[in-house]
Structure formats: C-alpha cells, structure tokens
C-alpha cells in the first residue's frame, strides 16, 4: 500500500505568494487505498503536486513522506521499485513514444509480462473502443485515442496508487465513462488508491475532493 503525508509543502514558484489551500502550506494525509480528486483551476500546481509525489521534481519547501519515508531521501533503486510495482501514472502529456505502435508502447511497461498478457491488454483496449489500433503507430492516433492508450498502459501492471493528471481531458462523455469504469475495476482488482487531478471534478467515481 502507499500512504502519503504532506507537511507545509509549498512549490518554490509560490514562495512569494501567500498561498493557502488544502494541499499547500498545510498538513495533508492521504490514506492507503484512498481515492481522491485534486481540484483546481489551471496554474495552481496540480501537475507539480503529482510530479512531487513521483519524485520527478523537488523544487518545493516543506516535507513529503511516502510510507513514512521522506521523498527526498528515497534512493534510485527504491524509486525504480516504487514506479514498477507500487505507483502507476497517467501523465498530462501522456508520455507515449510516437514512432512506436500501440502494442510497442504498452510493451515498454517493465512489468508487462508479469501476469498481464496480450489478451488482457487487447480486452482493455476493446473496452475503451481502440482494439483495432493495436498495430497502429501512436503518431497516427487522435489525442483522445492516445489518452486511452496511456490509460491502458498505466493499468496493465501491478500498482497500489494510481496518479492521474487530467486523464479524461480530451475524451467525450461516453469514452470518459468507459475509462472511469475500467479504472475503477482495476483499482478494485489491485486494491489500490487513486489521486486524480481535475479542473471540474470527476463524477461517479466516489472520490474525496481536495481543493488545491
């Protein structure tokens, strides 16, 4: 499981601004297996927040603890294990490789072979309506289709916390529903928690709201 504790965290860019929210400059506890949505308008630091939790950025004041260990003290090997087995993520810019096919992009997940076979992946792609794109180069897909590939890639591995940065921003209502349902199904299967950043809030997922 993954438990998160924030203690008076403030991004360096907000240092000169007297910013107060349910995340910045306060204490915040995120339970193991808890399901949250972090809501804010653009420019309030939603992406920064997720990047801090993933250890990809450290330009902040205060302390963040991941399973009682300061994030800044987690070493390279520990991060590798966390990213492989504990934390999965959907990035706002998707982080797909354009010149590779859908299958190859999903195949880049290091734990892909660990119980997540091709049939399972194809089934998930079918659920979100892009099963026929298996051998298509990602660069030929629309942004919405790419977003669904990124969602599937994040779900086809073991995880205890799913971090999603505005994962449905380019999806229509129908596809958003399909993706939400698939994510919830996988969360139940993995007994995992989730943190989703969103502009307007995600309905129907039973998420606790944290205002940024």
């Amino acid at each position: 499981m993954v438990e998160i504790e924030l203690n008076r965290v403030c991004p360096n860019v907000f240092e000169d601004i007297d910013i107060q929210s349910e995340v910045w400059n306060t204490s915040l506890h995120i339970d193991q297996g808890g399901r949250y949505q972090v809501m804010a308008q653009s420019g309030k630091g939603k992406t920064s927040f997720l990047y801090f939790l993933l250890g990809l950025r450290s330009d902040y004041k205060g302390e963040i603890y991941l399973n009682q260990k300061k994030i800044l003290e987690i070493n390279e090997q520990e991060w590798v294990l966390l990213r492989k087995r504990k934390i999965s993520s959907i990035f706002q810019d998707l982080q797909l490789i354009n010149h590779l096919s859908v299958a190859e992009n999903i195949g880049l997940v290091p734990e892909y072979a660990d119980g997540y076979n091709e049939a399972l992946i194809r089934d998930m792609l079918r659920v979100v309506g892009i099963a026929d794109k298996w051998n298509e180069k990602v660069k030929t897909l629309s942004f919405g289709q790419k977003q669904r590939v990124a969602i599937i890639r994040s779900l086809c591995k073991p995880f205890k916390l799913l971090l999603c940065d505005e994962p449905f921003s380019h999806l229509d209502e129908a596809n958003t529903k399909l993706c939400r349902a698939l994510i919830l199904k996988r969360l139940d299967e993995e007994r995992a928690g989730i943190i989703i950043t969103s502009l307007d809030g995600e309905e129907g997922m039973g998420l606790k709201t944290i205002n940024l």
Binding site: L54, E76, V80, R83, F91, Q95, L96, P110, E111
Partner: peptide, 14 residues
C-alpha cells in the same frame, strides 16, 4: 531525452 525519461518513469533502471 524524451524516450529515456519515459522509460525511467515507467520503472526501468538506469
């Protein structure tokens, strides 16, 4: 650079 950072974020080792 982009491909390397994707691989590292997915959990591949240096």
């Amino acid at each position: 650079t982009y491909e390397i950072s994707v691989m590292l974020r997915l959990g591949h080792t240096v």
